[in-house]
Amino acid sequence: MGSHNIVRTSRKRDTTHIRNTAYLFLAPALLPILVFFFLPALAAFVLSFTDFDIYSLGDFRNARFVGLKNYLQLFDDPLFAKSMVNTFYYVLVGGPLSVAVSLGMALLLNSKLARFKGFFRTVYFAPVVTTLVAVAVVWRYLYHPRFGLLNYGLSLVGIDPIDWLGDPTWAMPAMILLSVWKSFGYNMIIFVAGLQSIPEELYEAARIDGANAWQQFTRVTAPMLLPTAFFVGIITMINNFQLFAEPYVMTQGGPLNSTLSVVLLMYQQGFRWWNMGYSAAIAFVLFAIILAGSLIQAAFQKRSALTT
C-alpha cells in the first residue's frame, strides 16, 4: 500500500519533532510539580536535620545541621507522644467505624428492593463535598452541652448531657462521629461499585445450593468485596492521619491536649513557633506512617491481582 509507506517515512522524519512536542506538552505540568511539590518534599527532609528557627527565617545561614537531634527530641516530647496516641485513636477507631457504616449503607442502597436510589445517594453523599471548616463550625454548636441538638436528642432517650468538646474523654469521640458523618458517603459509593461488579451468577449458584441471605453475604459478598474493603480502609486511614481542621476549629487541640493531632502539632511547631526543623521532623514521621500504609496497600493489590 503506497499511502502506508508515505506515512511510515514521514513518521520517521517526524520522530524527533514528536518527541520534542511531547516534552513541550509535559513541561507546564511537570515543572510546577517539580518546583512546588517534589523539591520542597526533598528540602523538608534536609530541613528536618537542621535547627531552622525564627532567626534562620531572616537569614538561612543561621540554620545548622544538628543530625538526628530533632528526631531524638521527638521521643522525649510528651506533646508529640500525646499527638501520636490521639491520632492513632482517631485512625484506628474512626477508620474501621467509617468503613463499617459505609458498607452497611452500600448494602442498603444496593438492595433490589430499594427505590429512590438516586435521591438517597445524593443525600448520603452531600456531607462529602461540604467545606470541612464550615462543617466543624456547625458541629461545634451541635455539640454544645446545653444548647446543642445532639444532647437534646440524647435527652429524649434518657441520656444525660455530655460535654462533648469540653471533656477530654469525649472530645475525640466527637471528632470521630463528625468524621464518620462527613466521609461515609464517599466510601459508600466505592462499595456500591464493588457490589455491582460481583457477578449475579454467584448468588444464583448460592441460592440453588440453599444458602440464606446471611450465608450469601458471608460466602459470596464478603470475599468478593475484600479487595474493595481493603482499598477503602487504607485511603480512609491515610486521610484520617491528616486530621487538622476539626481540632483547629473546634477545640484548638484541647481540652488537655486530648484532640492534639500530629498535623496540628506540626502546624503549631512550624508556623506558630517557627521551629521549622523540628516541625519538618514531625512531618516526616507522618510521611513514614502514610508510606507504610500505602506499601501495605500496594502489596495487597499486587497479590490480589495475581490471584484473581
Binding site: F37, F38, P40, A41, A43, Q242, A280, A283, L286
Partner: peptide
Amino acid sequence: FLIAEMVIPAQVTTLPLFLLLN
C-alpha cells in the same frame, strides 16, 4: 515515578514551600 510521588502527603512540602514563596 510521578505516581509513586503521590504517597507524599502535602503537609510534608509546606515548610520549604513557604520558605520558597517567602
